[in-house]
Amino acid sequence: MKYVLMLALLACGGAPPKTAHQLPSDARLVDRDSGSFVAAERYRGKVVVLDFWATWCKECRQTIPQVARLAEAFAQDGLVVVGVNEGEPAADATTSARDLGIAYPIALDPELVFADRMGAQSLPMLVVIDRSGAVVHRARRVDRETLAVIRKLLKN
C-alpha cells in the first residue's frame, strides 16, 4: 500500500475537530498510484501510531528505524502506522522516505496545521490514537511505555 495522507484540512477550509486532540475525520489519504482520495475515516476502529518526522531532524533518523520495526511487529495485530512528514514538499518527503527505508504509509502536513492540532510541535513525536480516535499517548521515541500502551490498546 502506498498512500500519502493529505492533511491540509485547515488550509482547505475544513471544519476543525470537536477537540484539539482527535484524529480529524476530514483528513484524507491520497493513493499515490491512482491519485484518488481515501477518507482517513477508514482508521476509525483501529489503533493508529502517527510518527511526525522531517528530513532535517537528526533525532528522527534514530526514531524511524524503531517505528519501522514497530509497524512490522504489530502489523498482523492490525496496528496502523503512518509517518507524517512536516513542512516539506511531497517530492522531497517521498524521496527521503525511500532513502530512510520507510515502508509504512507516509503523510504530508505541508502547513504544519495537523501537527498543531495533534500537539506535535517538536520533532520527533509519536502520537498513539485509540480505536475511538482519541489521542492517548505521546512520546519522543519508541520506548517500553509506548509499547505497553500499544499492546493494551490492541488487546481491547
Binding site: 534514530q62 528505524p65 524503531q66 520495526r69 514497530l70 511487529a73 504489530f74 519508541v142 517500553r144 509499547l147
Partner: peptide, 15 residues
Amino acid sequence: ADPEPDDSVIIGADP
C-alpha cells in the same frame, strides 16, 4: 509462528 514482539528488539540499542 506468532511470537510476542520483543521490546528490546523494537526499541534497539540506546545511542
